[in-house]
């Protein structure tokens, strides 16, 4: 297990505060995440129902349960990453290194880091309809960048693949510079997106990916 100190912005006062980006989460950590986030998910759902927010505007990972993903972490190819701040898990990611290979023409068949699951804590969600502004910023960006870094460390040249939920598609396409490769019937029509080695190099070195 390794960790590094980062700084993330607290929205309430705009102050950058210290956080830990952890590599090597254990299955029991996913259980803790599941437990800690479950109550907040329930509160969000109640507020959405009370405010009659249309279901198609609900956060699409509202029903997730990280406890169910805990056994996945026992796989040799799996890694868990998380950001801890104010003694709580603020964002979590599960990656795999053997289940998928690159689909982009230029990289076809080459290994990549596949982001199996990524989610930020429910109290960090921005839901204007129920006056939720989110507690911390940048967690999705930090975790995605960590996946690219893992890919580089593995010798995969920064290649990353993922199936984004529809509400998250603009982030991975516009902010992360990923290429959309169409909806995947095997993943119930989620959009498959990939970051090539070339795109990753731009992200890691120059910042902008397009």
């Amino acid at each position: 297990m390794s960790s590094e100190t980062i700084r993330i912005q607290r929205r309430s006062d705009g102050v950058d505060i210290e956080a830990t980006l952890l590599d090597g989460m254990a299955p029991q950590d996913f259980v803790v995440v599941g437990n800690e986030w479950a109550a907040e998910r329930s509160m969000v759902m109640q507020e959405l129902l009370k405010s009659a927010v249309p279901r198609n505007q609900w956060p699409q990972s509202l029903h997730w349960d990280w406890r169910r993903k805990a056994p996945e972490l026992t796989l040799l190819e799996a890694s868990g990453f998380g950001v801890i701040c104010e003694r709580q898990w603020q964002g979590v990611m599960l990656t795999k290194t053997a289940s998928y290979t690159a689909r982009l023409d230029l990289d076809k068949g080459k290994p990549l880091v596949y982001i199996d699951f990524l989610e930020v804590a429910p109290w960090n969600w921005i839901i204007p309809e129920i006056d939720r502004a989110g507690r911390f910023r940048a967690l999705g960006s930090v975790l995605f960048w960590r996946a690219v870094k893992q890919s580089e460390e593995e010798g995969f040249r920064g290649r990353v693949g993922l199936h984004a939920l529809p509400q998250a598609e603009p982030f991975y396409e516009k902010a992360c510079g990923m290429t959309s490769l169409g909806r995947d019937v095997a993943k119930q029509d989620l959009l498959y997106m990939e970051l090539s080695g070339q795109q990753a190099a731009k992200l890691l070195k120059k910042g902008k990916t397009q």
Partner: peptide, 16 residues
């Protein structure tokens, strides 16, 4: 750049 786009998305969730 990424954070501004991140803030405009309802969810960042991947997978599942």
């Amino acid at each position: 750049q990424a954070v501004d786009i991140e803030d405009s998305c309802r969810s960042l969730s991947v997978g599942g």
